[in-house]
Computed example of a mutant assay.
Amino acid sequence: MASKDRLGASLRDRITALFRARRGVLLLRRTAALALLLLAAALAVQDHGPPGAGVPVLVAARDLPPGRVLSEVDVKHREIPVDLVPDGALRDSPAALGRVLGAAARRGELLTDARFNGPTAASGSGMASAPIRLADPEVADFLTPGRRVDIVTAAAHPGEGSVLAENAQVIAVQADSDDRDQGRLVFVGLPERLAGNVAAASLDQTVTVTLR
């Protein structure tokens, strides 16, 4: 009997030891899995920053028309997540001030370098960007931002044409399209008072430009 008791005790010890070993392996696996999860979370925070972290970018402070020469009142800063910032996003005001929008921008719209035609408007205070439509849309094919032109009214009869402005700087040129019934829109930099007169004249007169 003593021999059987010793044999039974030895078997129980082995079974107990086996269960303990299995529990140890299971605990080790769970610990390793938890450690991997914590490491992945730490890497995610390191790569993307803490929740809600953002970077400052420039957005339109109000609805802006095409050809607008941007000033301080037209832009403001807003923070957005770093992974949502597009290439070419403007980060500070000096990068936008004095530049001319190539297309309209809605209030709150993020501004990138692709939104502008030409580097800057005509520099200096008292300057403005005047829109004109050219009588011959194909003339606009020869215009680029920075080009200097004279703005003239087309003459219905010989000697009736007149020069509206001289040595105006081309700021932006409307993209080409199949619909040219109204002529292509061109923005030119002029002194404010003259810009208003030219823009008004182009509404009821046929306007073209001569190249310098």
Rank of each mutant, 00 (worst) to 15 (best):
E160M: 08
L203Y: 08
R91G: 04
K4P: 00
N197H: 15
G67I: 02
S125D: 15
A89H: 08
P94F: 02
A17D: 15
R78H: 06
A40P: 05
D92W: 09
P51D: 03
V75I: 10
V173L: 09
L203A: 14
P86W: 02
A168K: 05
S202V: 11
V45A: 06
G24L: 05
D150G: 05
A175C: 01
R78A: 13
V59G: 00
G98E: 00
A53E: 15
D178C: 03
G161D: 03
A165W: 00
A140K: 02
L90R: 09
D113Q: 07
R115I: 07
G161S: 04
E192I: 02
M1Q: 14
R107N: 13
Q205D: 11
G189M: 03
R62K: 14
P65Q: 15
D113R: 15
P51K: 01
A104Y: 10
H157N: 08
D63W: 04
S123A: 15
D204F: 10
H48N: 11
A155I: 01
A154C: 13
V82S: 15
I15K: 13
A17E: 04
P56Y: 04
D83E: 12
D181A: 15
R91F: 07
L37Q: 06
V139C: 04
L18V: 07
A42V: 01
V45E: 12
I80F: 11
A168L: 01
H77I: 07
T153Q: 07
M1C: 06
L110K: 08
L84K: 14
Q169S: 13
I132K: 10
P94D: 04
K76T: 04
R147W: 06
L101P: 00
G126I: 00
Q46S: 14
A156D: 15
G161N: 08
V170A: 01
A121D: 05
G49D: 09
S162V: 09
S93L: 09
T153K: 08
V188Y: 07
D113H: 13
L37K: 04
R180F: 06
R23I: 04
R29S: 11
G126W: 11
P86G: 08
P145C: 07
A105Q: 07
T153D: 08
R23K: 12
G108H: 12
